[in-house]
């Protein structure tokens, strides 16, 4: 209630709740705690539609749109003893859901799918290990970094409805990779952030996996996590967040920043800085691997420690909408739905779809 008072729905000259319009609500009757939410394209009976995927620790559910902005559960995959900790979005992929399971870190990646041959839903193991970072990229590819005591492995795998195939090793940097992001419009380019605050650029095709360049992400900022990257006019623009920043540090109440890198020289310059909305106390919660924040195109969203959800226009460096915590409780999850929607989830398993 205190947090709700600190964040009135309409902040003077600030972000407005009206920028987000509630479209529908998915209520999970099982009462299980929501861990993650995502969207997936699903094709059935010759019809392709956008479906919502919700995850609890022990199961993952697929929801289809019904009439009157309602949603119905189509199927629930029951998982084993290892808790589900994340849904890994797979852009431009149909009828496939990828999930990460583990305790504190990812120990297993699984593919959830519908087999038309067997007319049944099933799941298959993609990878096990001490997995530090994972991302789904276009053309049904999954890239992950994992660590043994001796070395770090960075791998790309091609996913299909039959499971995983065609593994390609990427050259690992010396430091642990903390996050990956594909480069929009460049099918063979991938960027990553490392524990030593570097930006790494790879060439990802099924032939080489070269490490092209390592650049510093900025000496004044603590460990950066990459969310998205775009190549334009010979520069590489990377959206970064700083999950471990403290308000007293130089980056203040920074949520996201967009940095332009010149990959030829390794030099960089900050382009826009997106701060927490006015009137908001406490840092945002953004953790790599267990993302409480999300970036789509040039929009950022994150759950704040106050229990509100904030949305930023990252190109303008401006907070454009705030969803205050309601009487039903604090927000726990904020994810962009494919298209222009935002999915916001509460701990009780309720997920709300907003039009943005």
């Amino acid at each position: 209630e205190d947090a709700a008072e600190q964040l009135p729905p309409v902040l003077p000259d600030g972000p407005r709740e009206e920028n987000l319009q509630l479209v529908s609500e998915l209520k999970d009757s099982s009462g299980s705690c929501a861990v993650d939410v995502s969207t997936v394209w699903w094709e059935a009976d010759g019809c392709r539609e956008l479906r919502v995927v919700t995850a609890s620790e022990s199961s993952v559910s697929l929801w289809e749109p019904l009439a009157h902005d309602c949603w119905g559960k189509v199927h629930t995959w029951q998982l084993g003893e290892i808790p589900v900790i994340q849904i890994i979005p797979l852009p431009d992929t149909c009828n496939l859901v990828c999930i990460a399971l583990g305790e504190l870190e990812i120990g297993e990646i699984r593919l959830l799918l519908y087999s038309s041959e067997a007319d049944s839903f099933k799941h298959s193991l993609v990878k096990t290990g001490n997995i530090k970072a994972v991302v789904g990229i276009k053309d049904q590819r999954l890239v992950s970094s994992s660590r043994t005591l001796q070395e770090q492995q960075v791998e790309m795998v091609l996913l299909s409805e039959m499971g995983s195939k065609d593994w390609q090793t990427l050259m690992p940097p010396e430091e642990t990779v903390t996050a990956f992001a594909e480069v929009e419009g460049m099918r063979e380019a991938l960027v990553g952030t490392t524990a030593a605050n570097s930006i790494v650029v790879w060439s990802v095709n099924l032939k080489t996996g070269q490490l092209l360049r390592k650049m510093n992400a900025g000496y004044s900022y603590p460990a950066s996590i990459c969310h998205r990257a775009y190549s334009d006019s010979g520069l590489l623009f990377v959206v970064l967040s700083h999950p471990h920043a403290k308000e007293s540090e130089s980056c203040g109440n920074l949520a996201f920043r967009v940095v332009a890198f010149n990959p030829k020289t390794g030099r960089s310059r900050g382009v826009t800085f997106s701060s927490l909305p006015p009137g908001c106390v406490g840092r945002q919660v953004l953790e790599a691997g267990y993302l409480e924040g999300d970036v789509w195109d040039t929009s950022g969203a994150a759950v704040l420690t106050s229990g509100a959800v904030a949305v930023w226009d990252l190109l303008q460096g401006r907070c454009v909408a705030v969803l205050p915590p309601g009487p039903a409780g604090h927000w726990a999850l904020a994810r962009w739905a494919l298209g222009t929607g935002l999915l916001a989830g509460r701990h009780d398993g309720t997920v709300c779809l907003y039009r943005y």
Binding site: T208, L211, A260, N262, P263, K264
Partner: peptide
């Protein structure tokens, strides 16, 4: 961003770095 900030910019940076990097 100006070129003086970031050094000489190449539109073909990806191809050029791919050709320079060890296979």
């Amino acid at each position: 961003c100006s070129e003086s900030d970031l050094g000489p910019i190449s539109l073909n940076w990806f191809e050029e770095l791919s050709a320079e990097a060890p296979p």
